[in-house]
Design a protein around this nucleic acid. Structure first.
Length: 584
RNA sequence: GCGCCCGUAGCUCAGUCGGAUAGAGCAUCAGCCUUCUAAGCUGAGGGUCGCUGGUUCGAUUCCAGCCGGGCGCACCA
């Protein structure tokens, strides 16, 4: 578990102490519990705190405090690693790590660069992440946008910790919805030629349907005149389908999302895969016939009841192609399948996991990440949407209005399984109230330092060529500690499929950066001499400058720190698919 | 009725494996630019962690019941 250079060092020192104590007969526990190390809430509790003594209390049958003392007594590296080691109340072990040890974080970041935070825990296991997968019956709406952002982030995070990830879009290009699309466009098409036909009762009402009909007329009109209605309808359907699918691709592309794989539902039926899979399940007795329909015995795998896969009229249900689709994924040999669904499909999870189990895999071979609804607000007022009437805000409109970066950040700010209020006005604001700008601005501010430094001819040595020992200020060390947590934040987010932990963390890093930037100087002031001459004795900021001295070594060390902050912001934003601008 | 999710500051929400005096942003109020980007910063107030029990050294976290909200319970997709 690589959770940062310092954490690793400290953890192994504690483990060493435990083993040392055991050798001496001071401790007797067979296997040590996880040596926990977290950042305590209060500064006086040190840099890192461990609860290991408390969790050993039961198996050692002694007071946590005594165990903690034993650990301390056996800490061979105490002098090298710690400034302070304390035992507090129930048995917390509070550790204050030497600045020089913290400084290694900056070396590590420099060395790893864009790879800082990455890990190999995925061991190149193959993962398929399926997301968006919207019916090509209309443009993508806001909800799809959130699904897209979450899917991309989950895929990227897993890549970053060593999985081989393929992202896939499942095109629902078969079945009733496609038929309805066809008849809807056909109805509008006939209307345009003053031959009104009955509009399908559950058809699609959006204005884009009429627009599609107009384009059918324009491009295919002469060819279609005099043709049979069924043929015209068929052409309307394929035309609309192709147009909408390419629209979806374009929208995703301008959202910065590209899929490695597009999988057609229709191809499953056409290739006979659906029937083949049903036959397989029949032979395994997971299918049975009742009242003229075929049922999947999903209740055998924890679903609350069995499900129809082939109706009385011989047609397959949606579930049938979904079974075939997931069987296809399994057949492709992935070690893990992740589906990202709208939360209204949650009732579907047990039956899909039943499918996975019917094929002999454990049910958690399929992980489903649910994405809850997005409520759009504008200046605090709810934007009303009605999908039925075809009035919904499209993903495209949101991207055009607030930009892809802001949209993604907002989509990822909350746990995907909880409702999201997305205020369009806020997302556009260029102020610290807007978390996207807040984070991006932190990055741009640092980028600006390099430009100014270059312009003034200030040398910017690499952290590895810089003496970092002047970095002892609590603000400096606080920033470094936060940077050291990045690998474990990334790994935690990835393993829980929870990108919102990343946005949260990035806001914290940006906050520390802005505070630091405001409080401390990094480069010497432009008009250093004039300033000091003009400034009256005792002026607060002047005093600060003189006190800190801003000797070249300090500037160099702080630049090294800034470089680390910038790298972490860039890496974190990158994983989320959000840009890290050099200038704003 | 059954199943899943949720209930933390006025609002929107974090809180990982059960840990110390409960965290952030917004809003409110009071301040901070002769400077490297004020697209920023500092400070203050604000809480029975829905309720009641249980598990234990310790519960916002785990368990049970209840209350309140959302979603799902098709031979639809």
């Amino acid at each position: 578990m690589s959770s940062g250079v310092v954490q690793e060092k400290v953890a192994s020192a504690l483990l060493g102490a435990l083993n040392g104590a055991k050798k001496k007969g001071q401790l007797k526990t067979e296997t040590w519990p996880q040596v926990s190390l977290d950042a305590p809430k209060r500064p006086e509790w040190g840099d890192l705190a461990s609860t290991v003594a408390m969790s050993l209390a039961a198996s050692e049958q002694r007071a946590p405090h005594d165990i903690a003392q034993i650990i301390i007594d056996n800490l061979t590296q105490r002098e090298q690693l710690f400034d302070r080691v304390e035992i507090v109340k129930p048995g917390f072990l509070n550790l204050t790590v030497k600045p020089a040890v913290w400084h290694e974080v900056l070396r590590e970041i420099e060395m790893q660069g864009s790879a800082y935070g990455r890990a190999e825990m995925g061991q190149r296991h193959r993962v398929l992440v399926e997301y968006v997968s919207a019916n090509p019956t209309g443009p993508l709406h806001v909800g799809h946008g959130r699904g897209a952002a979450v899917g991309q982030a989950v895929a990227n995070m897993l890549k970053a910790i060593g999985y081989d990830v393929v992202s896939e879009y499942y095109i629902n290009d078969a079945g009733r919805q496609m038929k309805l699309l066809g008849t809807s466009v056909y109805a509008r098409y006939e209307e345009l030629s003053n031959r009104p036909v009955e509009f399908p009762s559950e058809g699609y009402h959006g204005a884009y349907i009429t627009a599609l009909a107009e384009r059918v007329k324009q491009q295919l009109g002469s060819e279609l005149t005099g043709r049979a209605a069924t043929e015209v309808e068929e052409r309307c359907r394929t035309f609309a389908y192709q147009e909408l699918l390419s629209l979806i691709r374009e929208d995703l592309k301008s959202f910065g999302i590209e899929f490695e794989s597009w999988f057609s539902e229709a191809s499953l039926a056409n290739s006979g895969a659906v029937q083949r899979v049903l036959d397989e399940l029949k032979s395994k007795h997971f299918l049975f016939e009742q009242e003229g329909a075929w049922w999947f015995r999903s209740s055998a795998f924890g679903d609350e009841k069995d499900r129809v896969v082939q109706k009385q009229d011989g047609e397959y249900t949606y579930l049938a192609s979904d079974i075939a689709y997931h069987q296809d994924k399994l057949r492709r040999g992935y070690d893990l399948l992740i589906d990202i669904w709208g939360a209204d499909h949650h009732g579907y999870i047990p039956r899909m996991q039943a499918v996975v189990q019917a094929y002999g895999y454990p049910k958690d071979h399929l992980q489903v990440v649910l994405v809850q609804m997005v409520s759009l607000l504008r200046g605090g007022e709810k934007v009303e949407m009605s999908k039925r009437a075809g009035e919904f805000i499209t993903m495209r409109e949101v991207i055009d209005e607030v930009g892809a970066d802001a949209a993604k950040f907002f989509f990822l700010m909350r746990d995907s399984d909880s409702h999201l209020d997305f205020d369009l006005e806020l997302a556009k604001q260029r102020s610290s109230d807007n978390p996207v700008y807040y984070v991006q601005y932190a990055h741009a501010r640092i980028a600006s330092l390099w430009r100014v430094a270059v312009a003034r001819g200030i040398v910017c040595p690499l952290p590895s060529e810089t003496d970092l020992k002047v970095l002892t200020d609590p603000d400096e060390l606080g920033l470094i500690r936060k940077l050291s947590a990045y690998p474990s934040v990334l790994q935690g987010s990835a393993r829980a499929y929870e990108p919102h932990r990343m946005t949260y963390y990035l806001q914290q890093v940006a906050g520390l950066l802005h505070t630091f930037y405001n409080k401390h100087r990094i480069l010497p002031p432009a008009a250093d001499r004039d300033l000091l001459a003009v400034m009256p004795e005792g002026l607060v900021s002047g005093e600060g400058l003189q006190k800190e001295g801003l000797a070249p070594e300090r500037t160099a060390a702080r630049l090294a720190l800034m470089s680390g902050v910038q790298q972490v912001l860039k890496n974190g934003l990158g994983v989320l698919g959000i840009s890290a601008p050099e200038q704003m």
